[in-house]
Computed example of a mutant assay.
Amino acid sequence: MGVICESLDNASANTATRPIPKSADAQIRFLGKHENGSTRVVAQRLGISQRTVERYLTGQIKRPRPELAAKLAGEVARTGSRGCASGRSGRPRCRAWPPLSLSPTCASLAPSSRTPSS
């Protein structure tokens, strides 16, 4: 199952129609767009303050610290490969079907432990 899961994840990552943003402000805008404009949620995902996210959006800060740059690149790559932002409930906010990305653990491919009831 590991090879299948990796292949599915790689295939879903290669279906992006737009390149991943390079600059820090473009990456923050990208995350904000996928979180429906919520600077609070973006700040929580990156481990920074909401005001810092707002400063990136207004152009007051242009270059992130190295550790923030790594987090930012990871979150953008993860969000870009998912295709949809997840809400608080864990369900995607968009109505795209079929989903662009399967579960990273491929839980849906694992045999179920439940027996069908007749």
Rank of each mutant, 00 (worst) to 15 (best):
M1A: 14
V3M: 08
I4Y: 15
C5R: 08
C5W: 01
E6S: 15
L8E: 12
L8F: 04
L8C: 09
N10A: 15
N10L: 14
A11M: 10
N14D: 15
P19V: 09
P19G: 04
I20T: 15
A24T: 10
D25M: 09
I28L: 11
F30E: 05
L31S: 01
L31I: 01
G32Q: 12
G32E: 08
H34Y: 06
G37W: 01
G37N: 00
S38A: 10
S38F: 00
T39W: 02
R40P: 05
V41N: 10
V42C: 06
V42P: 03
A43T: 03
G47V: 01
I48C: 02
R51H: 00
V53G: 05
R55T: 08
R55M: 12
L57V: 12
T58D: 10
G59F: 08
Q60C: 00
I61V: 13
K62F: 01
K62M: 09
R63N: 14
P64N: 02
P64Q: 00
P64T: 05
P66F: 09
P66L: 06
E67G: 11
E67I: 09
L68N: 07
A69W: 00
K71N: 12
L72Y: 07
G74Q: 11
V76Q: 13
V76M: 09
A77W: 02
T79R: 06
G80V: 08
G80E: 04
R82K: 09
C84P: 03
S86E: 13
S86K: 14
R88F: 03
R88E: 12
G90S: 01
R91F: 00
P92A: 07
R93T: 06
R93V: 02
R95I: 04
A96G: 04
P98V: 03
L100I: 01
S101E: 08
L102E: 02
S103T: 07
S103M: 04
P104A: 07
T105Y: 08
C106Q: 05
C106M: 06
A107T: 00
A110N: 13
A110D: 11
S112C: 12
P116C: 15
S117V: 15
S118V: 13
S118H: 05
